[in-house]
Simulated assay, not measured.
Amino acid sequence: MVAPQPLAPTVFIVDDDPSVCRCLGRVARQAGFAETSFASAEEFLAARPAAWEQPACLVLDLQMPGIGGLELQRELAAGPAPCPVIFISGNGDIPATVQAMKQGAVTFLPKPFEHEDLLKAIREALEKHRGQLAAVSESRVLREQIESLTEREREVMAWVITGALNKQIAGELGVVEQTVKVHRSRVMEKMHVVSVAQLVRLCVAAGFEAAVK
């Protein structure tokens, strides 16, 4: 059985000028990207996925009727793994450009611009989004692992990451040392780690607090 091919990264284009959408869409498709265009920010918001599962980026006109580019950028930034934005504009609005970059835009391309500059920005944005999606996925898996632990296993893990020995943990929890050994083994198995150092790194990444000595 042939494995399914991964979906091509998507370039979303939002511009109220149909000719711009057609031109940039053609450039994106010729470079091997999937492409979808929208005439307004409102159309894009209505059609965007509830959660990003594949790498994507947004080529966004700065000034449009209705919801403007900066407002749309702020809306996207509120969600997990926000879709990176590449701003384009025919007006040299320096304050708006500065604001866009402060809000995390990948770059700002004044019209007219070279197609190669756009493709370079798209590749940079997609690579950024791949990293964000990977981080979100890892965080989700880590939360699920922690949620799979029993209350007692979490208590033991909170002490293990302090560097406490089994005997010390047993004294703190009021149980026999063998019980701590069993729970400790289950923690390591469920968290998919083979060392305390690895467990500590995962707990730090998840914001799981160590026990207070």
Results as ranks from 00 to 15, higher is better:
69 G>W: 01
83 C>Y: 02
110 P>G: 03
96 A>H: 04
47 A>E: 12
84 P>V: 03
85 V>F: 06
41 A>T: 10
24 L>P: 03
69 G>R: 03
70 L>H: 05
100 A>T: 01
56 A>H: 02
46 A>F: 10
21 C>H: 03
29 R>I: 12
20 V>A: 15
50 A>E: 15
62 L>R: 00
83 C>H: 01
66 G>D: 11
51 A>K: 13
100 A>I: 01
30 Q>Y: 12
94 I>D: 10
56 A>R: 04
62 L>G: 03
104 G>V: 07
87 F>A: 02
71 E>T: 13
106 V>C: 06
69 G>D: 02
32 G>Y: 11
85 V>H: 03
94 I>P: 00
108 F>A: 03
47 A>Y: 13
72 L>M: 06
83 C>I: 14
100 A>Y: 02
52 W>A: 15
48 R>E: 11
102 K>M: 10
59 V>D: 05
92 G>C: 10
36 T>E: 13
42 E>S: 11
115 H>W: 12
89 S>V: 04
28 A>V: 09
19 S>K: 15
79 G>F: 12
47 A>L: 05
31 A>V: 09
25 G>C: 11
107 T>L: 09
84 P>F: 11
71 E>Y: 06
35 E>W: 06
103 Q>P: 00
25 G>M: 08
25 G>N: 10
71 E>L: 08
21 C>R: 15
85 V>I: 09
79 G>H: 13
65 P>I: 07
33 F>Y: 15
49 P>S: 11
73 Q>T: 01
76 L>C: 06
110 P>I: 00
24 L>E: 12
93 D>T: 05
101 M>C: 07
105 A>N: 04
21 C>Q: 13
80 P>D: 14
79 G>D: 13
25 G>T: 06
85 V>L: 07
37 S>Y: 08
114 E>A: 13
68 G>L: 02
68 G>T: 07
57 C>M: 08
19 S>V: 07
107 T>Q: 09
39 A>D: 11
115 H>G: 15
25 G>E: 06
87 F>N: 00
41 A>V: 05
38 F>M: 06
97 T>Q: 13
107 T>F: 10
43 E>K: 01
84 P>A: 10
75 E>G: 01
52 W>Y: 12
101 M>S: 07
20 V>R: 08
36 T>P: 00
54 Q>K: 13
95 P>W: 12
19 S>E: 15
100 A>H: 01
